[in-house]
């Protein structure tokens, strides 16, 4: 990594330290409002109080897909524009995306037990989120094995873009597969029309989750920039010692 690349990330670091506290406070406030609204929201006439799990499950499902979209945009930035910050953004997003996908899977499973009578159903939505989780783990595994950061970023970017092409295909095929195997007892999640009294806390929670992701992503990007700085310093030190 050439030294000139530090110019941009340095500005970015000062930006992060200025913005991050505000983002964190905003996320906490949004969670406070969202959770209060969620607790006060009426129960669903069909699902009872378990509908409260929706306020965790649905926003994390949105984010799990949204973060892959963020990674895809970062991947384009890496491959097309060769922007060093795009490398950092893609790498920092992957573990956070995996964590939100995990939350989506766990809450979905705990929602499924009272609703469907079992922790896991090979329901179309759960299955495609599960595949998404596996793909996140694949990208993280790629970052683990690669040693040189900029090459790892470019290879992971290719994998991310192939994944972005593959995800709609997985979604479609799993939907198709599910209609073939659909057990009769399954209640479809997410009614087509959702009552405004349930929608308001849901949207608030979605805003809170988004702010949380933004804060975590910026912080993780800062960590990654510092990690690269350490790496560069050590390499230069080694070079100097050798010469």
């Amino acid at each position: 990594m050439p030294i000139s690349d530090f110019a941009n990330p340095s500005k970015f670091l000062t930006l992060v330290s200025r913005v991050l506290p505000w983002l964190a406070v905003a996320a906490v406030i949004a969670f406070a409002i969202g959770l209060t609204q969620a607790m006060q929201a009426p129960d669903d006439y069909q699902q009872g109080a378990t509908v409260k799990i929706m306020y965790l499950h649905v926003p994390s499902a949105w984010l799990s897909m949204g973060i892959w979209a963020v990674m895809s945009i970062a991947a384009l930035g890496t491959l097309v524009w060769r922007h060093p910050l795009a490398d950092v953004a893609g790498k920092a997003a992957a573990p956070i995306g995996a964590a939100f996908t995990l939350i989506c899977l766990i809450t979905g499973s705990l929602w499924g037990r009272p609703m469907w009578g079992t922790y896991w159903v090979w329901d179309a939505r759960l299955t495609s989120v599960f595949v998404l989780f596996l793909m996140y783990l694949g990208v993280i595994a790629l970052y683990w094995t690669a040693e040189e950061p900029s090459r790892a970023a470019r290879l992971a970017a290719i994998l991310t873009l192939v994944g972005a092409i593959n995800l709609p295909v997985v979604k479609f095929s799993v939907d198709w597969w599910n209609t073939l195997h659909q057990p009769a007892s399954v209640i479809r999640m997410g009614a087509p029309t959702i009552d405004p009294s349930l929608l308001k806390p849901l949207l608030m929670m979605a805003v809170a989750y988004f702010l949380l992701f933004a804060a975590l992503h910026l912080a993780a990007m800062r960590n990654e920039i510092l990690r690269r700085r350490v790496r560069t310093l050590r390499l230069m030190q080694a070079n100097e010692a050798a010469s």
Binding site: M135, G138, V162, N166, V169, V170, S173
Partner: peptide, 8 residues
């Protein structure tokens, strides 16, 4: 890396 992509 490859197996998740082969599901469809």
């Amino acid at each position: 890396l490859v197996l998740p992509f082969t599901i469809p």
